[in-house]
């Protein structure tokens, strides 16, 4: 499924306002959305529209070991959903099922249902390339390619079928500006991305993902490999993505979740397998958790 080169990034580049909450809603795929979104699971206070991503009874096995049990919750469009919980509770595993990166792990089996704007993404007939373009992912450790800054952004675009030089350059500049890197790197777009600092590399990775004009961005502890200053820059950047993208972020930093998230899902290990024990609006979960464990966890951890 090749992307029509004419469908460039104009919708979004013409300013934030022009970009509808859940990405490009001019497409017909958005039309049936309200009808399918009657499920009550979209957080306590879903905004207009409904869940961009909807997990239903997701279970994940690594070989024979069950690492996630019955995860069901929705991630609202244009909002930032934080997934928190102690390490080893399957947060990152769950995140990687959302764009099927879990397929790359040998022996990893996912069951249940995950719907992206109403369409299931777990079937075998899914175009994974298209899915991963719509659902971008940023990793714990910045992973720019060992190529120039420019090529890092343009290589995936070219792979998408965009050949027009002007268009490539325009997109490159736009996304690098969007992540606030333009002033720092505009004079050395042709030098190696590996020469950038860790925080710059991570922002480049975000820019690279944004260049594909995704609807959803997944962040897997994007700050944990960075120093505190770079961390706060990246964090502000993520906060600024609200409304433009549906953001799902895995973090073990409670205060970070509190600073940037709109809603929260708390994962916990119970009976040897990760489960979701509470989810909902940020304030509600942090101020008035239903679950005793969550209460201890968020209050102990927020410092």
């Amino acid at each position: 499924m090749k992307t029509d080169p004419d469908r460039d990034l104009a919708d979004c580049s013409s300013g934030e306002g022009a970009c509808a909450p859940a990405g490009d809603c001019s497409e017909s795929s958005c039309a049936p959305r309200p009808a399918q979104c009657t499920e009550p699971d979209c957080g306590d206070d879903p905004p207009a529209g409904c869940c961009a991503i909807e997990a239903q009874g997701v279970e994940v096995y690594y070989g024979k070991k069950k690492v996630l049990t019955d995860v069901s919750f929705g991630m609202a469009p244009g909002r930032i959903t934080a997934i928190i919980g102690p390490s080893g509770c399957g947060k990152s595993t769950f995140l990687s099922t959302l764009n099927r990166m879990s397929d790359l792990t040998i022996g990893c089996k996912v069951s249940g249902d995950i719907r992206l704007e109403g369409k299931s993404i777990l079937g075998s007939g899914i175009d994974l390339i298209e899915l991963r373009r719509r659902v971008g992912m940023i990793f714990q450790k910045p992973n720019p390619f060992p190529l120039s800054i420019r090529k890092n952004i343009q290589l995936p675009l070219k792979e998408m079928g965009i050949r027009n030089r002007d268009e490539l350059e325009a997109t490159t500049e736009k996304v690098i500006r969007d992540v606030g890197l333009w002033d720092e790197v505009s004079d050395r777009l042709n030098s190696s991305a590996l020469a950038l600092s860790g925080g710059q590399q991570q922002r480049l990775c975000i820019a690279r993902a944004m260049a594909l004009d995704p609807d959803v961005l997944l962040f897997d502890e994007p700050c944990s490999a960075l120093d505190p200053i770079s961390c706060s820059v990246v964090e502000e950047l993520i906060a600024s993505l609200r409304r433009q993208y549906t953001v799902v972020i895995v973090t073990h930093n409670m205060s970070q979740a509190r600073r940037i998230a709109d809603s929260v899902a708390v994962f916990w290990v119970q009976e040897g397998s990760g489960r979701i024990i509470e989810h909902g609006d940020l304030e509600r979960v942090f101020e008035d958790p239903k679950h005793a464990i969550v209460k201890d966890y968020v209050q102990g951890g927020c410092g």
Binding site: L128, I129, L131, G136, E159, M160
Partner: peptide
Amino acid sequence: DEYRFAAAALGMS
């Protein structure tokens, strides 16, 4: 492997 993950996440074949 990070390069492979990055490329896969960017929808590259």
